[in-house]
């Protein structure tokens, strides 16, 4: 019989964000999104830049920027380089970062670091996406 729920741990180098029970987790893997249910086969993956959602008592969204995830049948451990709960995201700052990155990319300066500017844009976009979702659908009302 498969377990009903699993333990979800989300940590970053500076803090532990989440330690809770979850019935479903969606991870932004480096090669695409992964849906994890309790009893999943052991799995190890690198994370990309994206949105992590999990359902426990309600639904919670986070923005995750790179890192690793280890999946065990009864536990999911996320080691993110940066992660923020949707409620914590500073939307204005993310918008400003997006505008800055777009400007840099559009300027067509051959000397810019394309990778860095691209990643900066991606980060800002995912933060905005997660924050918007949270604001239109308040937490714990799924």
């Amino acid at each position: 019989m498969l377990p009903e729920s699993m333990e979800l741990i989300i940590v970053t180098p500076t803090r532990q964000l989440v330690r809770t029970g979850a019935r479903e987790v969606t991870l932004p893997g480096a090669n695409g999104y992964l849906g994890i249910l309790p009893g999943h086969a052991p799995l190890m993956t690198e994370l990309g830049i994206g949105e992590l959602t999990f359902r426990g008592t309600g639904q919670t969204e986070l923005s995750v920027i790179r890192g690793f995830a280890e999946v065990l049948p009864d536990r999911v451990t996320v080691l993110a380089e940066t992660a923020e709960l949707a409620a914590e995201i500073d939307l204005e700052r993310a918008e400003a970062a997006k505008a800055r990155a777009q400007k840099r990319l559009a300027a067509g300066d051959p000397n810019i670091d394309w990778d860095r500017a691209g990643v900066a844009l991606q980060r800002a976009l995912i933060r905005i996406q997660v924050a918007r979702k949270y604001r239109s659908v308040p937490a714990n009302s799924h």
């Binding site: 480096a30 090669n31 052991p42 799995l43 190890m44 690198e46």
Partner: peptide
């Protein structure tokens, strides 16, 4: 000793883990 499914190869993962 758990047999993981690796999304990336062990070497790739190591390459990302060591700097961390």
């Amino acid at each position: 000793h758990v047999d993981y499914i690796y999304e990336q190869t062990e070497e790739q993962l190591l390459d990302r883990l060591l700097p961390r």
